[in-house]
């Protein structure tokens, strides 16, 4: 990318990685092709420090207040929130389905854990997504190597700890290659 990477301001607390916020919204019921998915996703902005993160986040709508079929994505700078990105194509994600009312708190806890490097899995984390839907909301965290079971187990255990979820919450791991196969059956 030709774009200049953001840097922490004077006296600010640097993050281990720079991140970019994205937003997407689509008409429900219609499976998005890769192209229209890329057209629907908008960059909000990038940050390099804790303070810069709060400047974005404090002005963003809470996921629980979004309507319709919307997603916030927070990915490391340079990684597109798409299965096809080089950082994601061998990867997968942990998915947690949430009943309505929990998304804002869970999303905040999830991204604070990611920005603060709480997962302890080296370079493996790619980003996180909150998806607002009609019946339920979904949060997910994406990592680079779906086949690395030690990493995916560690991510799962950290999620349980930082999200403080009810014990009966179901967590599901999905590889992106499976997600691509599934969408191809819907949108040939």
């Amino acid at each position: 990318s030709k774009k200049k990477m953001v840097v922490p301001g004077a006296g600010e607390h640097p993050l281990q990685y720079n991140y970019t916020f994205w937003y997407s919204r689509r008409t429900p019921g219609r499976p998005a092709s890769t192209q229209s998915y890329e057209q629907n996703i908008k960059q909000i902005g990038s940050f390099a420090s804790v303070e810069q993160f709060w400047r974005f986040y404090s002005h963003m709508i809470r996921p629980g207040d979004l309507t319709g079929h919307s997603d916030f994505h927070l990915f490391k700078e340079g990684i597109k929130p798409m299965w096809e990105d080089d950082a994601n194509k061998m990867g997968g994600k942990w998915i947690i389905r949430l009943r309505k009312g929990l998304a804002s708190r869970c999303w905040e806890n999830l991204i604070l854990a990611m920005l603060g490097e709480q997962f302890m899995v080296g370079e493996e984390i790619c980003g996180a997504v909150v998806s607002v839907r009609f019946q339920e909301d979904i949060i997910s965290i994406w990592n680079k190597t779906a086949s690395d079971q030690a990493t995916t187990a560690r991510i799962r255990d950290t999620l349980r700890r930082v999200l403080n979820l009810p014990p009966n919450t179901i967590m599901e791991y999905k590889t992106h290659t499976d997600s691509i196969k599934y969408w191809r059956t819907l949108a040939p």
Binding site: Q16, V50, W54, N109, G116, V162
Partner: peptide
């Protein structure tokens, strides 16, 4: 190398610090 690790409480504390405004 060293990793920059912050817990939730620290990050929340930076939200209201003067430098964040």
């Amino acid at each position: 190398g060293t990793r920059i690790i912050y817990d939730r409480k620290f990050l929340l504390g930076c939200r209201s610090s003067p430098v964040a405004k």
